[in-house]
Design a protein around this nucleic acid. Structure first.
Lengths: 219, 219
DNA sequence: CTGTAGTATAAGTAAAACACGTACTTAAAT
DNA sequence: ATTTAAGTACGTGTTTTACTTATACTACAG
């Protein structure tokens, strides 16, 4: 099997040198190029195509995220291994959304870096322990709290009000509601007004958001 | 430090015996009770409170998920370690939603079981490698595909239309939008109408739902 | 038995949203 | 070069909604 061709993209000379040193005597991995920013990198891509790009997330001009998005469409075969000082959920999520294949913190070890390069080259995902932990925590959090605001709040509404609310958030207009329930439009409006007041909301838009939060309607 | 008191809940004698055997000579862990189903378990709870409950996910009468939910409200201090033959996303997600502290497949090793019991006892989460992989994959998938229908669907809208849309779904009224953007109310209305037409929606309520689905606004 | 709180009902007026038609600009398409 | 389409922008007339105020009925506590 031939060597994995890697390109380094980082705006700090020291970081690039550090990575080169780390990978200097790794069999099967060859650094065929390096770039300080997106421009240099894309220029280089016209001459040679790497298998894997080690991409810093924070770069001047164009971020690693932006670069990833472009790579996904223009060079879908290139695997992206994101390197970042940050392991916060936001960064990781955006990187994943941009389609990176792996994500490592910069304080990674030589062995993990080599392993990660090999894994993403093979088409697998690779996420370091701390990144995986971040993802896990976020997943657990969203599973636990994400949805069940509970329907206690709705209970301050009278039955009639809840009924009206259901119609309103289905997008049914007041006149239609009125004829369906055989009451005056004015009455529907009054109920709606009390609902808004009780729930401390301003308008129908808020009402829809409230209804979704409280699982009165599905998206 | 005193021993961790554990209760086993599984409807199969063999499984319970297996676990007991696995944990028989583990220092610091003591099995203080076992149950075949929810009724037995809750009856036992009135006599003694364990630190950790090893809970099978599939039980007759009441599932492990249901039991977990009750435990979370009635005995919030008890840590729940779910045991399951299934590692599919759906099971894991529902278990997490029900508030379990850890999740292990039944083919786990003695060492991992002991580790997991200790971790959840300490208040940490514990998820076996395969479960963690399941979660990771799901997270990666949702990051990649789940959410950004927006970038595609919203793009049929012109910049101006997207701008108007953002205002509308924030609950800002047309006259306000008009003055903010220094255009006529009619113009705002026209844009809104084109948005509805392009997105094949009927009214503002639908627009809000669309915006939430496509992450234009947060709940 | 009577006052009060909660609910359901409704009308009048002001404000907002909607439907429809028109017009100017720009950028492809022919 | 001219047509076509898309984006942006307004005005008029009608419908719908928001806001305010008001009445009737019920249940329940004093």
């Amino acid at each position: 099997m031939s060597e994995i061709k890697v390109v380094l993209v980082d705006d700090h000379q020291i970081v690039r040198d550090g990575i080169k040193a780390l990978l200097s005597n790794s069999l099967g991995i060859k650094i065929i190029g390096e770039a300080q920013n997106a421009n240099e990198f894309f220029a280089d891509l016209k001459k040679q195509i790497p298998d894997v790009v080690l991409l810093d997330i924070s770069l001047p001009m164009m971020s690693g995220i932006e670069i990833s998005k472009i790579l996904k469409t223009d060079y879908p075969k290139i695997k992206i291994l994101m390197l970042s000082m940050y392991t916060s959920e936001d960064f990781v999520f955006n990187a994943l959304k941009a389609g990176v294949h792996g994500y490592l913190p910069k304080n990674t070890t030589r062995d993990e870096l080599v392993l990660a390069i090999n894994e993403v080259f093979k088409g697998n995902g690779y996420f370091s322990k701390s990144i995986a932990d971040t993802i896990l925590k976020s997943y657990v959090k969203s599973a636990k709290f994400g949805n069940n605001v509970s329907s206690d709040t709705v209970k301050v509404l009278t039955n009639r009000e809840q009924e009206i609310l259901r119609y309103v958030v289905e997008g049914i207009k007041n006149p239609t509601i009125a004829s369906r329930l055989s009451i005056s439009i004015r009455t529907v409006e009054t109920h709606k007004a009390s609902i808004l007041k009780k729930l401390e909301l301003k308008n129908t838009v808020d009402l829809v958001k409230f209804a979704i939060k409280n699982k009165i309607i599905e998206l």
